[in-house]
C-alpha cells in the first residue's frame, strides 16, 4: 500500500542565502520516477524531514512550471529549519508532498491582482508571482506590496527588476532602517502602502501572506477600503504533522488547513465559529 507518511529522499542541488536567517534551497528527488511525477500548484507546501529531528510543513517558493527542480525558502527559526543551516549542496533530506490548496490562478484571469506580503510571507507568493509574470497578458494590473523589518531582511531583492520588467508593480517598505543600511523607498508597515497603491476594490483579487498580526491588519484595512471578504485570499499557518487530514492539528472549524487550505478566501473563514485573522466569527 502507498504510504503517504514516508518521505522520499531529495538532494540539495543549489543554495542561496537570502538574508541573515533565510536560505533558498533548490531540490530534486533522487528517485527518477518520483522526480518525474512531482508537480505542484502555487501556494502548496511540502513536508520536509530532517531524520532524527522531525518534519515541518514548508511552502514551495519556486515556479510551478519547473517542478523537477523546486525550491523552498526557509527561515531558520524552528527545530527542523534550524537544522537545515548545516546542510550543504549535495546533502540529502526527506520530502513528501505537494499538499494543500493554493492560490487559484484561474480566479485571477482578467482581473487586477493585489499581492500583500510580509517577511517570509513572500516565499509562498513567489510561485504565483512568477506565474503572473509568465502569463502577464492574462491579467490586468498586478501590484505587489512587500514589507520587511529592515532592508537586509527583504527576500528576492535581485528579482524585483525582472518582475517590474514583466509589468508587475513592486512597492517595498521596511519597518526601520538601521544606520548601516541604505534605503530609498517607503518606511513603515505594509498597510501604510495602501495610500500609495493604484489598486482599487473594483475587479481586484487580493492575495496576502505574512505574520498573523500583519494579515489581520491587512484584512481590516482593506475591508475599510471597501474590498469585500470574497476578494481577499489569505494563506494560513497552522501546526501540521501529516499534511493529509489525519493528525488533526491544523483544523479550524470543519476545515483542514492542510487540505482545504492553506489558502482560503477570507469570506470562507468568516463562516467559521472560531475567529480567524480577527474576523468576529459567526
Amino acid at each position: 500500500m502507498h504510504n503517504p507518511f514516508k518521505p522520499q529522499q531529495a538532494k540539495i542541488v543549489d543554495m542561496k542565502r537570502e538574508t541573515a536567517d533565510t536560505t533558498t534551497y533548490t531540490f530534486e528527488f533522487l528517485d527518477e520516477e518520483v522526480k518525474e511525477n512531482f508537480c505542484f500548484t502555487p501556494g502548496q507546501f511540502n513536508m520536509l524531514t530532517i531524520f532524527g529531528i522531525g518534519e515541518a510543513p514548508i511552502s514551495i517558493s519556486s515556479d510551478p512550471a519547473k517542478s523537477k527542480y523546486f525550491q523552498h525558502t526557509i527561515r531558520h527559526v524552528g527545530n527542523v529549519t534550524n537544522a537545515m543551516v548545516k546542510l550543504k549542496v549535495g546533502d540529502k533530506l526527506g520530502i513528501r508532498g505537494a499538499y494543500g490548496t493554493g492560490w487559484n490562478i484561474n480566479l485571477l484571469k482578467n482581473k487586477n491582482v493585489l499581492i500583500v506580503a510580509g517577511g517570509i510571507g513572500l516565499a509562498p507568493l513567489r510561485p504565483v508571482i512568477l506565474q503572473l509574470a509568465g502569463q502577464r497578458g492574462e491579467f490586468d494590473r498586478v501590484e505587489i506590496l512587500y514589507g520587511a523589518r529592515t532592508p537586509g531582511e527583504m527576500l528576492f531583492t535581485d528579482e524585483y527588476q525582472t518582475w517590474r520588467s514583466k509589468g508587475l508593480d513592486v512597492l517595498p517598505t521596511v519597518d526601520n532602517v538601521p544606520d548601516t543600511e541604505e534605503w530609498k523607498h517607503s518606511v513603515g508597515v505594509v498597510t501604510g502602502l495602501f495610500d500609495e497603491m493604484q489598486s482599487m476594490p473594483e475587479n481586484t483579487v487580493v492575495l496576502t501572506c505574512g505574520p498573523e498580526v500583519m494579515m489581520q491588519f491587512v484584512v481590516k484595512d482593506l475591508l475599510e477600503r471597501h474590498f469585500q471578504p470574497h476578494q481577499i485570499y489569505v494563506s494560513l499557518e497552522r501546526r501540521m504533522n501529516c499534511g493529509v487530514k489525519k493528525c488533526g492539528k491544523c483544523q479550524i472549524g470543519p476545515k483542514f488547513v492542510c487540505k482545504d487550505g492553506p489558502v482560503f478566501a477570507y469570506a470562507e473563514l468568516l463562516t467559521l465559529p472560531e475567529s480567524v485573522l480577527g474576523g468576529v466569527g459567526k
Partner: peptide, 9 residues
C-alpha cells in the same frame, strides 16, 4: 484521532 509525531534517534 489527533496525533503528534516525534523522531527517536
Amino acid at each position: 484521532f489527533c496525533y503528534n509525531v516525534v523522531d527517536k534517534i
